[in-house]
Nucleic acid binder design. Sequence first.
DNA 1: ATTCAAATCACCCTTTCGGGTGAAGGAATT
DNA 2: AATTCCTTCACCCGAAAGGGTGATTTGAAT
Lengths: 140, 140
Amino acid sequence: MKRTVILYGLALAGLVFLLKYLEYRLIVHDLSIEFYVGLVALFFTGLGIWAGLKLTRKQVVMGGPEFILNESELQRLGISKREHEVLELMAKGLSNQEIADKLFVSLNTIKTHSSNLFLKLEVSRRTQAVQRAKELRLIP
Amino acid sequence: MKRTVILYGLALAGLVFLLKYLEYRLIVHDLSIEFYVGLVALFFTGLGIWAGLKLTRKQVVMGGPEFILNESELQRLGISKREHEVLELMAKGLSNQEIADKLFVSLNTIKTHSSNLFLKLEVSRRTQAVQRAKELRLIP
DNA sequence: ATTCAAATCACCCTTTCGGGTGAAGGAATT
DNA sequence: AATTCCTTCACCCGAAAGGGTGATTTGAAT
């Protein structure tokens, strides 16, 4: 951003010198002023396009893998933090045992959490739970 | 795209008239030529930015919810039509029994297909298979 | 202080999944 | 004719998942 502004300033400064130079040239060679102005227009058009792309490219990158958690839906369904955590790991394809290990709790605990999740999400299998959770934007 | 080019042409044409007009004005009011060229530069910079945005905005919109099946990857992994079919239903959260019913084949057949799928996708659980298949763009 | 939700774990039982092996029929290729 | 691949199905077994019930602890709200 800063760099863009600086380059723009330099371009403008360079233009002034160019014009001073052209001012003399105009007397010697009788080229129309429209020609020079056309060059300037072209140059700054290119500069503008470049600047525009530079500015939006960041927005494009940002506008890609964006995920905003649907907290209202989480509340509506009454899904707790721990349950949500389990849900995320579930979506990563982990088994209950692996989730239990990762969260340092017992397998039974995870089974309880997942059972509650299935009730709240109104599903009966983990694959469906993951699907539904993605639809509701509860997970990326 | 066409519209952009036309507008650009009109802008350039307008500029020529503007310059002709300024040519007389320059005699009356003794404003420096740099001032007018600066205006032109500014104007075309804006025009360039606008054009740049116009061109990229379409790319952004196009790059949205589109799904193109990665057939080369399907071939590379040696996944058959039937297996791909099973994979899709699996991704919908269906159990093996439900898939079997939907395809009018036996449960054992689906188990064979899914086992082969897991080998080819190098996973060991259906949740992981779905995940991987989405990564590889084998399913939407 | 009491109530309540969340989190933890246990035990039971049934269903589903996944791995391994084998095999039969059919279509396409060589 | 032989080979290869796809599809179909079977059986066995162990692991994982899911359903139900009940219990303890802890922290937050009333």
